[in-house]
């Protein structure tokens, strides 16, 4: 009798501790998704019939096709190069790559607009060689995707380099040494030993970046407001959903489209958890 009352008090205590978080989890995680689903009923057909959706999907797809390979290759090659010759220089460089991650959102858009303006940019000669005479020219046509790719790489590469480098330093030393003793060249060790061992991390980088890339919103929005008329306000899928909600006042379509995007993110999240087993806790 005493014991069970104690158990009951214990259960109550646990919910005092975890309850407030669960309330927030429901209110700002599950509820908006459920409410969105309710709001979206009847609007799905309209959304998928909208000609602007096709254009937005093409834009985002092209952005991903260019950005993802550049990001992953750069991150991998820099992390492997840093790891091949660790030391003071490598330590400093690792930090240098990481810093631009602090400049995000509208600050990043502002900074890179200046970087694309030949009259003030330290990359002036490079821009000249590419035939870019002004920031507005850099944003014209497919130039926008180029600017977004460069921005996206500068912002995200550093954090991933740190993660991948951390994974490399955690590799078992004896395996790498055994390969070296067997006469494997540094290149062969990288290609056949290190790379397969950090595959899980590369998959994690790829899936997470894919998920966040599909949701691209901030950068094209900020670039659009500063170069009005040049860039479509419905350039990306999320921008189109935002446009539905705020410019056309159509919450049904906005909800349908953002739920479709949510589903893409959810699939990616589940892939990370169950396929790459990146978060190995006893919960999954």
């Amino acid at each position: 009798m005493r014991k069970s009352r104690r158990d009951q008090a214990g259960r109550l205590a646990v919910w005092v501790l975890v309850g407030p978080y669960v309330v927030f989890l429901v209110a700002f995680g599950l509820a908006p998704a459920a409410f969105g689903l309710w709001t979206s009923l009847g609007s799905w057909g309209e959304v998928f019939g909208d000609y602007r959706l096709g254009a937005a999907v093409r834009n985002v797809a092209l952005y991903l096709v260019l950005w993802l390979p550049v990001l992953v290759l750069l991150v991998l090659s820099l992390a492997l190069t840093l790891h091949a010759r660790p030391g003071r220089f490598a330590g400093v460089m690792r930090f240098v790559y990481y810093l631009p991650g602090a400049v995000t959102g509208s600050a990043a858009a502002l900074l890179w607009l200046f970087m694309m303006s030949p009259d003030v940019s330290p990359f002036g000669p490079l821009l000249g060689a590419l035939g870019i005479g002004s920031a507005s020219q850099a944003l014209q046509g497919d130039g926008l995707i180029g600017v977004l790719v460069v921005m996206g790489v500068a912002i995200h590469a550093g954090g991933w380099i740190v993660v991948l480098y951390g994974a490399l330093t955690a590799l078992p030393r004896d395996v790498l040494e055994a390969a070296a003793v067997d006469g494997a060249t540094p290149w062969r060790i990288t290609r056949h030993v290190k790379l397969p061992l950090v595959r899980r991390y590369v998959a994690f980088v790829l899936i997470s970046s894919f998920a966040s890339g599909t949701q691209v919103f901030v950068e094209p929005t900020v670039l659009e407001t500063s170069a009005r008329g040049q860039i479509s306000p419905t350039w990306s899928v999320n921008q189109l959903a935002y446009f539905y909600a705020t410019q056309e006042g159509d919450f049904g379509r906005a909800a349908a489209l953002s739920l479709a995007m949510l589903a893409v993110g959810l699939v990616a999240a589940l892939l990370v958890i169950y396929k790459t087993r990146f978060y190995r806790t006893d919960a999954v």
Partner: peptide, 19 residues
């Protein structure tokens, strides 16, 4: 709760903004 927390961590935050 743990599984939802993991999903919430990995899901891009932008995905929930409009809902």
């Amino acid at each position: 709760v743990l599984t939802l927390t993991l999903i919430g961590m990995i899901l891009p935050q932008t995905a929930l903004v409009l809902p």
